[in-house]
Amino acid sequence: MRNRSLITWGIILAILIGSGVLTILLPALLGGEGATPLPSTPSSVTIPLPVPIGGRSELTLLSWQAMLALALLVPALVIGAGLTLALVYIILSRLVARNAADPERQQNATALQKRQDERIKQMRQTRPTSRAPESTWRRWRVITTGAIILMFVAFATFLIASLLFPDRQIVRQDNIVNIVSLAVLAALLIALVIMIFALRADRLAAIDQTESLAIPWDMIAVVVTGLLVVGLGIGVIAILNAPQ
């Protein structure tokens, strides 16, 4: 199973990298000619050094050199951070497993659990529970979810209306109207009407039951890997098309 997973990842990486390289080299393979580059002056990037090195307080690189350095630095930092986290996780997991297998700790944990069970049993006999009925929880679930949805609708509408109307006001029949506030109120009313007919406790309970599903790490890893390869491909294209 593990070998099959490695083969799958190898195929995905080969497809991503191969498609990027093919995109760059396809015009030359088909005998086409690249577009004539516009005349331009090579740009440079000046990076101040925190500590003078060799009597120099800053480092000047061409743009393609800086892009190449970033293309090498970002994967190195990602891999280094991943290895560090993996090492910390392995050390902590071994410590936890060693402590869990300790016989003395198991005896202490069993005795502590027994005392806690006896204490809870005595408290239940002397103190009646005051747990709210299920109907109360269902009602508050709908109320809190509706309040959260209204908050996000108000924020999103406010941002969009502010972008469309930077002055936030318009003149309508010699009257100044705050169009942003009206848009927010209209969006809130529409969202409220929709939630009155669509937001039900049963639907929220069904959504809560799906929260125990496994996180799709494979899909997340594929997306992140694809973005990384696309970024490296853009860097390679920028280096190949850099003005001479």
Rank of each mutant, 00 (worst) to 15 (best):
L62A: 14
P37C: 12
I215G: 02
L72H: 11
I160E: 05
A71G: 11
S43A: 15
A109M: 05
T23W: 15
L73D: 05
W217P: 10
L228A: 13
S19G: 07
L38T: 14
F155N: 01
L240H: 13
D202M: 11
I239G: 07
T210K: 10
F165M: 06
T145F: 09
G146V: 01
T136N: 13
L213R: 11
I237C: 14
L85D: 09
Q107G: 12
L61P: 01
G146N: 04
L59C: 00
V230L: 13
I196D: 05
L68F: 14
E118D: 08
P50F: 04
E134C: 05
I207H: 13
L232C: 07
L185F: 02
D202V: 09
P166R: 00
Q244V: 05
L25Q: 02
V229Y: 03
P166F: 00
G235A: 15
G233Q: 13
I179S: 01
G34T: 12
R124V: 12
R127I: 12
I90P: 03
T110W: 08
D202E: 15
V45M: 04
I196W: 11
L182Y: 05
I196C: 11
I148R: 08
G54L: 03
L213C: 02
L204F: 13
V177W: 05
V236R: 14
P243F: 15
I17D: 03
G80T: 09
A86F: 11
V153K: 00
G80A: 02
I237H: 14
I148V: 08
V177D: 04
V74D: 00
A187F: 03
T144I: 09
S57P: 01
Q116A: 08
I194M: 06
V222M: 13
Q65N: 09
D208F: 10
S57F: 03
V224H: 07
R203H: 14
A187K: 01
L87Q: 10
E211H: 05
T145R: 08
T126M: 12
F152H: 00
L188Q: 07
L188G: 01
F197N: 12
M195I: 03
S40Q: 15
M1A: 13
A156M: 04
A242V: 07
G10E: 03
F155C: 00
T46S: 07
P48V: 09
L182E: 10
R138S: 13
L232N: 00
L87V: 08
G10V: 01
L159E: 04
L73G: 13
I149R: 02
W137N: 13
L95K: 04
P216H: 05
L61H: 08
A147H: 06
V142A: 12
